[in-house]
């Protein structure tokens, strides 16, 4: 396939009189590692909510794999191959960790006729790559913060995505835990999955991403390789408020 995996063009989103996204355009290639940064309230989460379908964009177009998706409900987008993790973890609290993964396995990967035993094995495999295998039987609402972040990523992975959006998966984690999550995302990327990383921890974004976009007040103010972004005066201004 020659075109970009995801093409966002002139996307706008308003909340009442407030402009959250003022015409954002970006392309993401197959298997790309992409960083999305910006100060609080700059529209990062709104943008990925529009991409994943939790919100509908008011204007512009969003195409995945060449197909317009901006009118589709979120579950259809997940089935097409867009998965996301939530900034504040939203586990299925009454289920075990393993069952959490069975939801996307049953609703995305093995729709229709299926046997419960099959998805258990598959879910277990994903948990192993995430280092959560020993927690498979634990109820999800009994996990620690790091484990919850990993569960978010594991559940997103269980829908076998081609694009994974990781929304601040590292906020509040210790530096060794941050390393762990970066390593996991790196391994996922090695299997060909494109990743959008939204993060406040600059060090992590800069190390991970091949290309970075900085949002401010609903506009893209800067785009380029990580090294260029750090030096950009607009970015510094947006972050430091000079």
């Amino acid at each position: 396939m020659s075109g970009p995996l995801l093409r966002v063009e002139g996307v706008t989103k308003y909340f009442g009189g407030f402009t959250a996204l003022a015409g954002v355009s970006l392309d993401i290639a197959q298997g790309e590692r992409f960083g999305l940064i910006g100060p609080n309230g700059s529209g990062k989460t709104t943008l990925i909510n529009c991409i994943s379908g939790s919100l509908r964009n008011d204007g512009g177009s969003i195409a995945f794999d060449g197909k317009e998706i901006s009118g589709l409900p979120a579950y259809r987008r997940t089935r097409l191959g867009i998965a996301r993790s939530f900034q504040i973890p939203r586990p299925f609290g009454s289920m075990s960790v393993l069952e959490n993964l069975q939801v996307p396995l049953e609703y995305v990967v093995h729709r229709g006729a299926l046997h419960t035993a099959d998805t258990r094995g598959e879910a277990m495999q994903i948990l192993e790559t995430m280092g959560l295998a020993d927690k498979a039987a634990t109820p999800a609402n009994g996990l620690t913060q790091v484990q919850l972040r990993k569960l978010e990523l594991a559940r997103a992975m269980a829908s076998r995505p081609r694009l994974l959006i990781s929304d601040e998966a590292m906020a509040g984690l210790s530096s060794s835990e941050v390393e762990e999550v970066i390593a996991i995302l790196g391994r996922l990327n090695d299997t060909g999955i494109a990743i959008i990383m939204i993060e406040h921890i600059m060090r992590a974004v800069m190390r991970f991403s091949q290309r970075v976009i900085c949002l401010d007040a609903g506009n893209i103010i800067c785009e380029g390789p990580p090294e260029a972004i750090v030096k950009d005066s607009m970015v510094q201004k947006a972050y430091l408020g000079a």
């Binding site: 379908g53 579950y75 089935r79 998965a83 939530f86 586990p91 939801v103 609703y107 299926l114």
Partner: peptide
Amino acid sequence: WIGRGLQAIRDTEEAAECSGVP
């Protein structure tokens, strides 16, 4: 699988939708 989907809705509807549950 319907039951698991309903349980997911009960736990958190937004995450259920993003896990492919209609």
